[in-house]
Design a protein around this nucleic acid. Structure first.
Lengths: 182, 182
DNA sequence: GCGGCAATCTTGTCAGCGACAAGATTGGAC
DNA sequence: GTCCAATCTTGTCGCTGACAAGATTGCCGC
């Protein structure tokens, strides 16, 4: 990172994305402001426009990054179906900001080539991992597995779950996801 | 409905909520503007403030309405577990605007008394309906059922599902939800 | 009927935001 | 060493949410 008083920031694009993650984690994607990100990064209010065009452009980049990182997390979970589901939930909770943007296509440009590619890669991974596990009707099985992991993650993030589920999502996620194909 | 040129609107609160549903269905909750709603209802830009205080107040009312209507939809589905899940998904798709607000507590006041009451009522209904169906470990079963229906609905609304699932969510939802406890 | 009151709606204003335009600064290619 | 393109700044505009103050009207008691 270069000196803070230099005219050129050095790595503003990354700094803005990091600041966006921080801001979204604090107040949700709805309250995100480009000018606030610029302040956090110590640049002028118009600097973000050069790297992302507009707000949707920044969120497109964030969603793309999210799909890529979700892919890594799923690969790290191995072939086991249940662990993939748990990894999906853990990713959503640990990378809340990314996750909250990824599945709100009204916030970004869903037809952006880079984003489409990242989403396809991770989607294929998701579908393949499940249909490899069970023999018959892979489509419905994959959809069911994706749905249950995604639903649990969304409900957890929304704070909709009863408090007795506990503070750690992982054991609850393992139990819930395990109910499939049992 | 009173004459459009009268000083008092007559039923502005309802008109604004209806307009909000329309606007959110068109462009998502992020693009919602109180001034746009006022224009749609034919009143001045400051009129909404009297009924809802601020934007969060309006969305709180919309979410409350949504939880109540989801409760009605679930009651209409009867005691059958699978049909409850399908009804949940159908509600999400048919009342997209309400659903999209209900599970985004960062958009409204989640501690509002009326909202909390409506959410509790529907939540109890959701949990009770499922644990009545299966005998053992009702908590995990209820959570799994809620998760799979909620996840499928969210993925459908986000446009994340492969196109071959089809244009009608109901048969796909029935198949996916049916995978639980099978 | 009618006086007054409270609910409802209007006009006016302010700061913050996203987007755009035009200019300043700088690193690097040649 | 010069020039160019990438990067960042300053300035501006219309839109938005929120607040303040005033206008209109339905309604209740008498």
């Amino acid at each position: 990172m270069t000196s803070s008083r230099s005219y050129h920031h050095g790595d503003l694009r990354r700094a803005l994305l990091d600041a966006a993650v921080e801001a979204i984690a604090e107040s949700g994607p709805a309250a995100l402001s480009l000018r606030d990100l610029a302040r956090r990064a110590g640049v002028s209010h118009a600097a973000p426009a050069h790297h992302f065009g507009d707000k949707a452009g920044l969120l497109t980049a964030l969603a793309t990054q999210g799909f890529d990182r979700l892919g890594e997390a799923l690969r790290g979970a191995g072939d086991d179906f249940r662990e993939s589901g748990v990894a999906y939930v853990v990713f959503a909770v640990r990378h809340r900001a990314h996750f909250e943007v990824m599945f709100r296509p009204d916030l970004y440009r869903a037809d952006d080539p880079d984003l489409v590619a990242a989403r396809e890669r991770t989607g294929e991974l998701l579908r393949g991992g499940v249909s490899r596990h069970t023999g018959r009707e892979p489509d419905v099985d994959a959809l069911a597995a994706w749905s249950i992991a995604h639903g649990f993650a969304e409900l957890w993030l929304a704070g909709a779950l009863p408090t007795r589920v506990g503070a750690d999502p992982e054991p609850a996620a393992r139990a819930v996801v395990g109910r499939l194909f049992s």
